[in-house]
C-alpha cells in the first residue's frame, strides 16, 4: 500500500509535483502514466525518501520510508537503468545491497536466476546492455522479496521477449498480493499490464481509475490518455502544424 497525500515538490520556481494525492493498493498492477516531465520520477523518488517533499507526505505500508526497519525487505525499487558502478559485477552489486538489509547471500543467486542473469553475474556490469541493466535493476528490486514494488520505466531498453517477461513478472507479483506501481509513458504497454491507473500531468493528478474505466468511451486507452493530458503536455513537437501550413 502506498499513500500519497498532498505531495508537493518545487525546483526553484517550477512546481514538479503539485499537491498530489493517490493510493496504490495491493493485489493489482497500478500504472503511473503521464507525459514527459509530468513529475512521475520525482514522485517515485519521494516515495523512496530520496527527495524530500516541500509539502505533504507519502507512506509505504503505513510508514514513512525513512522509518522502515528493513527497507529492502518491504519496498523494492527500480529507479533507473544502470544505477550501479560499472566496475562492479552484478553479483557484488546485489551482495552489497543484500548485506545492508541482512538478506541471506543465497538470495542473490536466486534473484539473478529469476531475471536470467546467472551466466553474466560475474561480469563487470559496465559492459551490460541497457536491457541487461534493467534486469539487474529488477533483480535488486526483488532482492528483499518485498510486498511493495516501484518500477520507473522498467521496459526501457528491453527486447520484445524482455517486455513480455516484465509484463508477466509484474502480473504474477501483483497476483501474489503485492503492491506493484509501474511508471511508463508507453500507454499500449500499460493497457496490457496494468489494471489500475494513476495519471498525472504537470505534477497534478488527472485520473485515479481503472484501465477499463478510462478507456470506456474512447477508441483506445491511448485516445483516452490524450484527451486527458491534452492540456498538460509540457513538451510537444510542432511538426504537424507546420506541415499543414
Amino acid at each position: 500500500m502506498i499513500e500519497a497525500r498532498n505531495l508537493t515538490k518545487r525546483y526553484g520556481p517550477t512546481v514538479a509535483v503539485d499537491a498530489l494525492s493517490f493510493d496504490v493498493r495491493p493485489g493489482s498492477v497500478t500504472g503511473f502514466l503521464g507525459p514527459n516531465g509530468s513529475g512521475k520520477s520525482t514522485t517515485m523518488r519521494m516515495v523512496l525518501g530520496l527527495d524530500r517533499p516541500d509539502a505533504g507526505q507519502v507512506r509505504v505500508g503505513g510508514r514513512r520510508y525513512r522509518e522502515l526497519r528493513w527497507p529492502l525487505r518491504e519496498v523494492g525499487a527500480l529507479l533507473e537503468a544502470k544505477a550501479f558502478h560499472p566496475g562492479r559485477s552484478a553479483r557484488s552489486h546485489l551482495a552489497a545491497l543484500a548485506a545492508s538489509n541482512a538478506i541471506p547471500p543465497a538470495r542473490v543467486d536466486e534473484v539473478l536466476d529469476m531475471v536470467g542473469l546467472t551466466s553474466a553475474a560475474g561480469r563487470r556490469a559496465g559492459k551490460f546492455s541497457l536491457g541487461m541493466g534493467q534486469r539487474l535493476g529488477v533483480a535488486a528490486a526483488l532482492l528483499g522479496d518485498p510486498a511493495v514494488l516501484l518500477l520507473d520505466e522498467p521496459v526501457n531498453g528491453l527486447d520484445p521477449e524482455g517486455v513480455r517477461w516484465i509484463r508477466d513478472l509484474l502480473k504474477s507479483l501483483a497476483a501474489e498480493g503485492r503492491t506493484v506501481f509501474v511508471s511508463s509513458h508507453l500507454i499500449s504497454e500499460m493497457a496490457l499490464t496494468a489494471e489500475r491507473l494513476v495519471v498525472i500531468g504537470r505534477g497534478r493528478l488527472l485520473a485515479d481509475t481503472t484501465v477499463a474505466e478510462l478507456s470506456a468511451g474512447s477508441a483506445s486507452l491511448e485516445d483516452a490518455f490524450f484527451r486527458l493530458t491534452n492540456e498538460a503536455v509540457e513538451y510537444r513537437g510542432n511538426t504537424t502544424k507546420e506541415a499543414r501550413s
Binding site: P71, L79, K82, F84, H85
Partner: peptide
C-alpha cells in the same frame, strides 16, 4: 563521488535511508 556519477547512491540510500 563515483556513487553519484553512476547512480549507485540512490540504491544505497534506498537500502539505508538513515
Amino acid at each position: 563521488t563515483s556513487e553519484y556519477s553512476s547512480g549507485t547512491i540512490r540504491a544505497t540510500l534506498a537500502a539505508v535511508p538513515r
